[in-house]
């Protein structure tokens, strides 16, 4: 069973790596999907595993996006060090805000994260001199990767770069959730009081995963900046946080791959449906969300597991 799972996982990443041949004309869209998938993975860590309900995760995505953008706009165009710097800054933002988020009930967390997200959005909006405000940050110039590979208009370099970064962070996240630490997170999601009783330092564990998740979100944001060479105010918007939640739920929370599947379905559907009519898209998005929750919130992956009869890896009831 475990071996079959490993084959499936290898196939998943091999197909993505074969993307250069399989969808050569769609590489920019595929990069966007991978970035959204990484963002959703970061959210899966706190929602699917640790059970933290947040509607402001775009804050960290935005911190990463703006950090990378500002660095590149002010002469630091080297992509990899810029990416690391952006990830660290987002982690710092996550660390600072984590004490506010990890305590309290679902509702308090919901409101604090929403508040923090809006706070950051307003901040970026008001600091137009630095961030470019509603017009977005212009003049982001990213240097060639390793000093040799230019970010070309077909998005080949960008796709390879994004795929490599996403894969590395995915491995880290996979290692994390399968460690004793990951197990303790699921325990906390199931019953925080009992975890506290057996000597688990609940707040510290939650703060740690929140910080790591913020770092991943920040890297996702930085990748978006570096591949599109632009930062818009919408990286921090409430809509992005809400869409993130939708992607993860569509794919299936608490399964690591759910975010990628959800991001792919969401963004491809968005790509085709909103070119028909943006209003229809929003309506069907809402209707789909209601339907998913009505029929049972396992997402596409959960459905696949049920069809294949695979034993569920998830522990305990959903958050």
């Amino acid at each position: 069973m475990r071996v079959r799972g490993l084959w499936l996982e290898a196939a998943f990443w091999l197909v993505l790596a074969a993307g250069f041949v399989l969808w050569p004309s769609r590489l920019p869209l595929a990069s966007q999907v991978l970035i959204a998938g990484l963002f959703a993975l970061s959210y899966d860590l706190i929602l699917g595993y640790a059970g933290i309900l947040s509607l402001g995760h775009a804050a960290y995505f935005g911190v990463g996006a703006y950090s990378a953008g500002l660095l590149a706009a002010h002469g630091w165009g080297e992509p990899i060090s810029g990416l690391i710097a952006a990830g660290l800054l987002a982690a710092l933002a996550g660390l600072i805000t984590s004490p506010l988020v990890v305590r309290g009930t679902d509702l308090t967390r919901l409101m604090i994260t929403t508040g923090l997200g809006l706070l950051l959005f307003e901040l970026a909006n008001r600091l137009g001199a630095i961030t470019g405000g509603v017009d977005g940050l212009q003049g982001v110039e990213v240097q060639p990767l390793f000093g040799a590979l230019r970010f070309d208009i077909y998005g080949r370099t960008a796709y390879g770069y994004v795929l490599a970064v996403v894969f590395v962070l995915f491995l880290a996240a996979r290692r994390l959730v399968r460690s004793p630490f990951g197990l303790s997170l699921r325990g906390i999601r199931g019953n925080p009081a009992r975890m506290r009783a057996i000597g688990c330092r609940v707040d510290l564990h939650l703060a740690a995963v929140y910080t790591f998740s913020a770092a991943c979100a920040g890297v996702a944001g930085a990748l978006l900046t570096q591949t599109t060479q632009f930062v818009g105010l919408d990286v921090l918007s409430f809509g992005r946080s809400a869409e993130l939640l939708v992607m993860l739920i569509v794919g299936g929370a608490g399964l690591l791959y759910g975010g990628f599947i959800g991001a792919a379905v969401f963004m491809i559907a968005h790509h085709y449906l909103s070119s028909l009519d943006p209003v229809y898209w929003q309506f069907w998005l809402g209707a789909g969300l209601v339907l998913i929750v009505l029929v049972g919130r396992d997402g596409i992956l959960g459905l696949g597991h049920r069809v294949l009869g695979v034993r569920r890896r998830r522990a305990g009831p959903a958050p």
Binding site: L107, V279, Y280, G288, L289, V290, V293
Partner: peptide, 24 residues
Amino acid sequence: RRSHLDQVLVTIGLVFMAIAVATW
């Protein structure tokens, strides 16, 4: 009796639908 997450999802879905209908 469902979790807060479910409630948030359903009501956000309704908000999206309401926005679309109002725009239409």
